[in-house]
Write a protein that binds this DNA or RNA. Structure first.
Length: 326
DNA sequence: ACCTGTCAAGTCTGG
DNA sequence: CCAGACTTGACAGGT
């Protein structure tokens, strides 16, 4: 089994390379020259895209093949103050450069729109801004020239006191969307509301791939065990996709705060999972969600490479050998 | 240079 | 019905 690892948005190793710089709405308003304020926002966006390129070069140097873009590349873009603003023509060359680099080096990239993108909502205005947000994320992928292998990962959303109704609303609202947008979406189980089994059910209804978050399942399992049969169903949602299944891993911050994310990732729970699925899954991608980002990734690789059943393929890819053929 | 409070968003909880 | 918690990285203003 071949497993690749990646990290989210920002680097702990590359200094001053934030891809998420922004401006507050308050300070935008406080600038008397609106034209100048908009130009400032555009400069920040260009800086975020330039830093994203720096991070991709860093990823190439460290042989990191998996990366999630920041969802805050363009500051205030969804704010009502800037409803008339369209910065994308200006930013198109920068997006294209990023996409060219991703394709040239065979990287797998994604977005994770923030948790206020909620397709299960009963509110018309929330649904409308959720559509806008997804549209904008897919537009950015389009500007990069990336196809449906590049995903926007979201959660089901709120339950509003009735999970069944909320899931049905999600399905209906999803089906209303342009199929092009839908082809870029993955669904992930969350840490409070929709469990892995519930999320999987929605994925199967919509024929959408599911990103399993192992940590979320630990704190919000609904009593369901993550066994090989459940994994086979999850893996099946990736059939026909041109990318391997992806999972998220992170470790609990503490006993007091089991849902929080710790700085680094414990290897033992991950290894148990990988050893369970290795016979049915030849290729897997693992996104680390740790506070220490790429530093956590390198530390995990350092620990994994010492194990007898693991061989490093490159700096962030392992081969897990099958030591239990039965 | 560093520290503390504030900011974006939607949902959920408590009062 | 409304205020506050939740989450996260970064701004903003202070020392």
């Amino acid at each position: 089994m071949i497993v690749r690892f990646g990290y989210v948005a920002m680097s702990m190793l590359v200094k001053n390379a934030s891809p998420s710089k922004t401006m507050t709405a308050t300070s935008f308003i406080s600038l008397s020259d609106r034209e100048a304020a908009v130009r400032k926002l555009e400069r920040i966006a260009e800086e975020n895209l330039a830093n994203t390129m720096r991070l991709l070069r860093h990823n190439r140097a460290y042989e990191v093949h998996l990366y999630r873009f920041s969802s805050k590349l363009v500051p205030l873009v969804s704010h009502e103050l800037l409803a008339e603003w369209n910065p994308f023509p200006l930013l198109e060359p920068a997006f294209r450069d990023i996409g060219d680099y991703v394709k040239e080096h065979d990287m797998r990239v994604s977005f994770h729109p923030d948790h206020f993108t909620v397709l299960s909502t009963p509110k018309e205005d929330v649904l409308s801004s959720s559509y806008d947000d997804l549209k904008r994320h897919v537009l950015m992928l389009d500007l990069m020239g990336l196809d449906e292998r590049a995903k926007c990962n979201i959660h089901i959303g709120g339950a509003y006191g009735n999970k069944e109704a909320a899931m049905n609303r999600f399905v209906t609202n999803f089906e209303q969307m342009d199929a092009h947008i839908g082809s870029h979406i993955t669904l992930e189980n969350d840490d409070k509301t929709f469990t892995a089994v519930e999320t999987l059910g929605v994925c199967e209804r919509l024929n959408v791939p599911m990103v399993l978050d192992v940590h979320h399942h630990q704190v919000n399992s609904g009593g369901d065990e993550l066994d090989i049969e459940l994994w086979k169903r999850i893996a099946r949602t990736w059939e026909g996709q041109r990318v391997p299944p992806k999972i998220h891993v992170s470790s609990p911050k503490s006993e007091k705060d089991p849902r929080g994310h710790s700085d680094y990732v414990e290897e033992e729970p991950l290894l148990r999972f990988l050893r369970m699925i290795q016979e049915v899954t030849p290729n897997l991608d693992v996104m680390l969600e740790a506070k220490m980002k790429d530093a956590a990734l390198l530390r995990l690789m350092d620990k994994l490479q010492k194990l007898d059943d693991i061989r490093l393929v490159d700096q962030t890819t392992i081969e897990l050998k099958n030591t239990n053929p039965s």
